[in-house]
Amino acid sequence: MFRNNYDNDSVTFSPQGRIFQVEYAAEAVKQGSVVVGIASKTHAVLVAIKRNAEELSSYQKKLFPIDEHVGIAIAGLTSDARVLSNFMKQQCLGHRLTYSRNMPIRSLVDMIGSKAQINTQHYGKRPYGVGLLVAGVDDSGPHLFEFQPSGMTEEMIAFAIGARSQMARTYLERNLDKFKTSTREELIEHGLRALKESLVQDRELTVENTSVGVVGYVKETKKTEPFQVFDGHEVQRYLELVADDKKEGGPQAATVEDESTAMDVDA
């Protein structure tokens, strides 16, 4: 049943010093559909591909608002993401109530990092099967963080996680120098272009399968532009930004690869 003796739980090191359970959890992230995040000097954006279980069902949620100034994009087990999302919401709210300010993004991300690390060191626990991109603004400006099931958290200029995300990352690396000074719209456009790179053949970005999330910092007023998710017809105008190579024909019924999105990933 097991590949070797060292991958039964997250408290056993392999002779090479690896923890297979944590590495397998990272695989669960790759099962999720792709999400992309980019930060500029003024904004942080998240864009995502949503899947639907079958043609008549609704599409999954990929972007979650956490607080006025933070949002997350998820890839992997949605139910694990909801646990982390709830925790982050509570922390942000608590912080806002006690200090009346936006919780610094790094403190927030560090907290879920520590939480996830515990799950990799104690018997009877399992690592979270989800990866996150956390986008937010605080007093020091916009930030983008990546969170992995191992508890690793790193601040990125731009990043992509999920199925076929390597293509998106390649796009982001190619355009890395442009992001810092990009405007809000340009940033979304880059995000969607990166997303497109990850699509399988014959697949299109549609108003059904695309989500866009934006959070920003207005320097003049020192106020935040609250994190907002755009879905459905609201993403139309953003899709038009990247519609240069649009194919003819009606909006394609977005049937998605029949990869499972359910909890059975680690079964």
């Binding site: 930060a39 983008l144 790193e154 601040e155 990125m156 200029i157 731009a158 990043f159 990352r169 982001l172 690396e173 890395l176």
Partner: peptide, 10 residues
């Protein structure tokens, strides 16, 4: 590990 890491931030 990645060019996408924000330099000096981590």
């Amino acid at each position: 590990t990645s060019k996408l890491l924000k330099p000096g931030a981590n």
